[in-house]
Amino acid sequence: MSARTQAVALATLVRKECNRVFRIWLQTILPPAITTALYFLIFGNIIGRRVGQMGGVDYAQFIAPGLIMMQLITNSYGNVVSSFFSAKMQRHLEEMLVAPMANWVIVLGHTLGGVVRGLAVAAAVTVVALFFTRLQVANVLVTVSVIVLTAFVFSLGGLINAILAKNFDDVSIIPSFVLAPLSYLGGVFYSVALLPEFARQLSLLNPILYMVNAFRYGMLGVSDVDLGVAYAVILGFAAVLFAICLVMIGRGTGIRT
């Protein structure tokens, strides 16, 4: 197929994924907004008042970028897992497999659907955050690029999970036992500078720490990690995960007999 027809196929897939996200917005957009409001109420206001400042800003302001990133990560990942796995189970994934779509179109189309869901949730969470704290954007380019790239990385992660999943347990294990702990330990609620040296060094192995801090730098101008290293980690993960997805779809792993 020509580049133009691949572009049409990609646009079709992205539209299909976006329609799904916004058709079921009560399941996809609203819950993270409510959860974040509770986080702000409890951690930002009730506990935050006693904490005072962290990283040179109010505690509620400090946790805002982390909470936005946490919901972005969970939702971009969850969107692709849910969409791709249910298409696999209901077998309408075959609509794509019998069509002359390039493998990169299948990967990118699903991933962009996850990015759109992640960004929509991030926008909703940001609006909620504005009710509890004052937000600023210190560097627009860093803020936008980090949030889009992070959603892209976790959408790819969700796609790999969905490709390999054989049952519903397989799609819930990674979010519960890997993503949630890494997010909570990724500097969302605290600065790693407060940790003992061993725990701080251990935290540097957590890729989410780089994403949260790069985003925090974009918004507040403060970060626990070097921005260059953070971009290298994010771009490295994006490239490697995209390549893995391409190989898996090409081989038919988990989707062809």
């Binding site: 197929m1 020509s2 133009r4 027809t5 691949q6 049409v8 196929a9 646009a11 079709t12 897939l13 539209r15 299909k16 329609n19 058709r23 298409a87 209901q90 309408h92 609509e95 794509m96 069509a99 002359p100 779509m101």
Partner: peptide
């Protein structure tokens, strides 16, 4: 078929996959 999608969407989406 995608049980949650409309009849029209199901066929037009498939056509889009073919360009």
């Amino acid at each position: 078929i995608n049980y949650w999608d409309s009849v029209e969407n199901i066929v037009t989406t498939q056509a889009g996959f073919y360009g």
